[in-house]
């Protein structure tokens, strides 16, 4: 008797399940299924994946995406390391102001960010004018609408995110360790390379995989800067489905799957290294 009324409450779950199944589960499954069917019609095939890995445009898109994601994450994490270390060592007003700035600009990305860089470093940007005035050619002739320009913007949005993610990890570095290594005659650099970095490594790697995913998925920044004139995974994926050209579900699906796979690969790699570090750390 009571059990029956209990199952009535499954109805309460129904709205949630409806929305999640309609807009999360089915779309994701369908995009994977579609990637195995040719756009011209036909049966199951790997044709779309072959196209992705043989056509220069798509190969270029994958390479560009991986390159920009790796470089921006790498630079980002290095700056974040020093930023988080400084935040950890500072206190009071400096610390609070820094935290406030980081939190504020952590939402500064996408179209507004690209726009701000265009104002500063675009073809008639403010800084370029400045370069001309003071005769600094490198600045005066800077080309923002290139891979390196795009990377520069990506680095910007990686810094606050990675610093905010790393700061809690620094709490794990005990003051006592630093003091005792100092008493044992180790220099500060030695402390960081021998003790600090290995202890932080799991957090650093975890942060790197977040940064990589963040850069890989960034669409608005790249699109605002370069529109469709650049080979980049998210731009190409969107291009397959949106716009005036015919919709190519199969090829677009294959590109999307590649994009998701890249994420999975990155997570697997960082997990692997993290495990090794944890093991080594335990032995030492």
């Amino acid at each position: 008797m009571k059990n029956k009324t209990k199952y009535l409450y499954l109805l309460v779950l129904l709205p949630f399940l409806t929305v999640v199944i309609l807009f999360e589960v089915i779309p994701l499954i369908m995009i994977i299924i579609n990637s195995f069917f040719p756009d011209k019609g036909g049966s199951v095939t790997l044709e779309n994946y072959i196209t992705v890995f043989s056509k220069p445009l798509y190969k270029k898109a994958i390479l560009n995406s991986v390159y920009i994601s790796c470089v921006s994450s790498g630079i980002g994490i290095i700056i974040a390391f020093f930023g988080a270390k400084a935040a950890h060592e500072s206190s009071g007003k400096f610390h609070n102001a820094f935290m406030r700035v980081l939190n504020m600009v952590s939402n500064f990305a996408g179209v507004p960010l690209a726009f701000a860089y265009m104002i500063m470093l675009g073809n008639s940007g403010v800084l370029l004018q400045l370069g001309k005035e003071i005769g600094l050619d490198a600045l005066a002739n800077y080309k923002l609408y290139t891979t390196s320009g795009l990377t520069l913007i990506y680095v910007y949005f990686q810094i606050p995110l990675s610093t905010l993610l790393l700061i809690p990890a620094f709490e794990g570095i005990r003051k006592e360790w630093q003091e005792s290594s100092l008493l044992l005659g180790a220099s500060s650099t030695r402390f960081w390379t021998r003790i600090g970095l290995p202890v932080l490594m799991p957090s650093i790697l975890g942060t790197i995989s977040v940064l990589f995913a963040n850069a890989l998925a960034a669409y608005a920044t790249a699109y605002a800067l370069l529109m469709n004139n650049y080979a980049l995974l998210p731009i190409n994926v969107s291009g397959m489905f949106v716009g005036d050209v015919t919709i190519r579900r199969g090829l677009g699906g294959a590109l999307s799957v590649c994009m998701m796979l890249l994420m999975v690969i990155m997570i697997l790699i960082t997990n692997r290294i993290t495990k090794r570090f944890r093991k080594g750390g335990a032995k030492a």
Binding site: I79, F82, G83, K85, A86, A87, E89, S90, S91, F94, A97, F98, V101, L102, V105, F108, L113, F115, A116, Y117, I119, M120, V126, L127, Y156, I159, P160, T163, S188
Partner: peptide
């Protein structure tokens, strides 16, 4: 000395992060 170094890093990163905002706002 350490805190001074930390403050310098914070100021540098802070300036770097705020410049685009500031420049566009002035613009």
């Amino acid at each position: 000395k350490k805190t001074t170094a930390a403050h310098i890093v914070i100021i540098l990163i802070g300036i770097y992060l705020l410049i685009p905002l500031f420049a566009t706002a002035v613009y």
